Measured scan of single mutants.
Amino acid sequence: LETFPLDVLVNTAAEDLPRGVDPSRKENYLSDEDFKAVFGMTRSAFANLPLWKQQNLKKEKGLF
């Protein structure tokens, strides 16, 4: 999966995202380093959170 810089994904409308980016899964296009910096946890820890908590975190970080 291709990764993009944080500033390309945060608070970006679906139509302005790079081609192929799923707007409902912007976090998947962050590098592992950016993911950890944004969410303060690994991808696996994030995946283990309840869906509502994942969505709330994504909203807080501008990735929803």
Rank of each mutant, 00 (worst) to 15 (best):
K26I: 15
A47H: 13
F46E: 00
M41V: 05
R25G: 05
R19I: 14
E2D: 12
K61R: 08
F35E: 00
D7E: 13
A37E: 13
K61F: 07
L49E: 05
V10M: 14
L49P: 00
N28F: 11
P50H: 03
N28D: 15
A45I: 10
S31D: 07
K59M: 11
D7F: 09
E2M: 14
L51R: 12
N11W: 05
K53L: 15
Q54N: 00
L51C: 14
F46G: 00
L17P: 03
V38T: 10
F64M: 15
P50Y: 01
T12V: 15
R25H: 15
P18Q: 04
E60V: 08
P5A: 06
S31Q: 03
K59V: 11
G20Q: 08
D32V: 06
K58D: 00
T3V: 13
W52I: 12
T3E: 06
F46A: 00
G62A: 02
K26R: 14
F46S: 00
F35S: 00
R43V: 03
L6I: 12
R19V: 15
N28V: 12
G40D: 10
T3K: 10
A45Y: 08
Q54R: 11
E33T: 10
R43T: 04
D16T: 08
V8Q: 12
N11R: 10
A13D: 11
F64R: 07
E15C: 13
E2F: 09
K26D: 03
L30M: 06
P23G: 07
E2R: 08
D34H: 05
A45S: 11
V21C: 05
R43Q: 07
Y29W: 12
Q54V: 02
P50S: 07
V10L: 14
R43E: 01
S31N: 09
G40F: 05
S31F: 02
G40K: 10
K61T: 07
F4T: 03
R43A: 05
K59R: 12
W52E: 14
L17W: 06
M41D: 00
L63Q: 02
T42E: 14
A47V: 11
A13I: 10
E15V: 11
Y29M: 03
G62D: 05
T12C: 11
K61E: 03
Q55G: 07
N48C: 14
F4A: 03
Q54A: 04
Y29P: 01
L49K: 01
D32R: 04
P18L: 04
K26A: 06
